[in-house]
Amino acid sequence: MLEIRGLAAAINEKPILKGIDLTVPDGEVHAIMGPNGSGKSTLGYVLSGREDYAVTAGSATFNGIDLLDMEPEARAAAGLFLAFQAPIELPGVNNANFLRTALNAIRRSRGESELDAVQFLKLARAEAKRLAMPDDMLKRNVNVGFSGGEKKRNEVLQMALLRPKLAILDETDSGLDIDALKIVADGVNALRGPEFSALVITHHQRLLDHLVPNRVHVLLNGQIVRSGGPELAKELEKRGYGDLIAEAA
């Protein structure tokens, strides 16, 4: 699904990622953990094509195609989805219209027919209901006046509608209470299957209890310093990153 080789990236000429190697096979969920400032969010941004990050070395392919040369919307059309850590507010843009525009853009690129307003609303309402979101969230402006939890659920709703092949969840669990956390995890679990993979960026073991990863990677100072099974997350939760930081130093 995703193949990253020696990926290095910088912002304002400051190196953040310093050679990442990572393979996420089809159908797997991988967790990325690490202390603040280790480069976790940068990895998500670089993979989804944010312009202010410059890739200085390495490659990233997505189902065999070179990701790094593609426009952000082309990556989305190819099936890559980033759930933002801090979802952007779009004043004046209606949430339902936004979702329908995005969904139809992606459907177009897949050669599928576009959904009309009625078809779309039926679909969106059903998904919203599954995520325990009130209907009026579809009528409001995108993320404007949403609580932290509502914004995160809105991200998961978008993911559920757009049905990506690879979802990158950037600290989608932060600021969520236990019920909301479970809803988010269920949202991802519902998509799990042989053609769906996920990269879950998180600080906490909590989410991984509900969304059990195949592999856990520790990102430190722009490099993956340790990889392991789900037990690695539990170990980190207990012991913190201190030992790893000491080892790296």
């Binding site: 094509g49 919307e73 990556r75 989305a76 507010e89 853009a105 978008q158 757009l162």
Partner: peptide, 11 residues
């Protein structure tokens, strides 16, 4: 905002 929209597949 532009990036957010594009990352959702909007050209």
């Amino acid at each position: 905002q532009m990036f957010y929209l594009r990352s959702r597949g909007v050209p």
